[in-house]
Computed example of a mutant assay.
Amino acid sequence: MSKPLRYLLAVLLPPVGVFLTYGLSISLLISIVLTLLGWLPGSMYAVWALVKHDENVGETT
Score class of each variant (00 low, 15 high):
residue 4 P to V: 02
residue 4 P to F: 04
residue 5 L to Q: 03
residue 6 R to N: 07
residue 6 R to D: 03
residue 7 Y to T: 03
residue 7 Y to G: 05
residue 7 Y to F: 14
residue 8 L to E: 01
residue 10 A to S: 13
residue 11 V to W: 14
residue 13 L to F: 13
residue 13 L to S: 12
residue 13 L to Y: 13
residue 13 L to P: 15
residue 14 P to R: 00
residue 15 P to K: 00
residue 17 G to L: 03
residue 17 G to P: 15
residue 18 V to I: 12
residue 20 L to G: 08
residue 21 T to I: 06
residue 21 T to W: 01
residue 21 T to Y: 04
residue 22 Y to D: 05
residue 22 Y to W: 11
residue 22 Y to E: 10
residue 23 G to W: 11
residue 24 L to T: 14
residue 24 L to G: 10
residue 25 S to L: 10
residue 26 I to T: 12
residue 27 S to G: 13
residue 27 S to H: 15
residue 28 L to N: 09
residue 29 L to P: 15
residue 30 I to L: 09
residue 31 S to G: 13
residue 32 I to V: 10
residue 34 L to A: 05
residue 34 L to N: 04
residue 35 T to Y: 05
residue 36 L to T: 01
residue 36 L to I: 01
residue 36 L to K: 00
residue 37 L to D: 08
residue 37 L to W: 09
residue 39 W to A: 03
residue 39 W to P: 13
residue 39 W to N: 11
residue 40 L to F: 10
residue 40 L to N: 04
residue 41 P to E: 15
residue 41 P to L: 14
residue 44 M to P: 00
residue 45 Y to K: 11
residue 45 Y to N: 00
residue 45 Y to P: 00
residue 45 Y to W: 09
residue 47 V to L: 10
residue 48 W to M: 04
residue 48 W to Q: 06
residue 49 A to I: 08
residue 49 A to F: 06
residue 50 L to F: 03
residue 51 V to H: 15
residue 51 V to E: 15
residue 51 V to A: 10
residue 51 V to C: 12
residue 52 K to N: 08
residue 52 K to E: 13
residue 53 H to Q: 14
residue 53 H to L: 01
residue 54 D to W: 04
residue 54 D to N: 10
residue 54 D to G: 11
residue 54 D to C: 08
residue 55 E to H: 07
residue 55 E to L: 13
residue 56 N to Q: 12
residue 57 V to F: 09
residue 57 V to T: 14
residue 59 E to W: 00
residue 59 E to C: 06
residue 60 T to N: 08
residue 61 T to M: 11
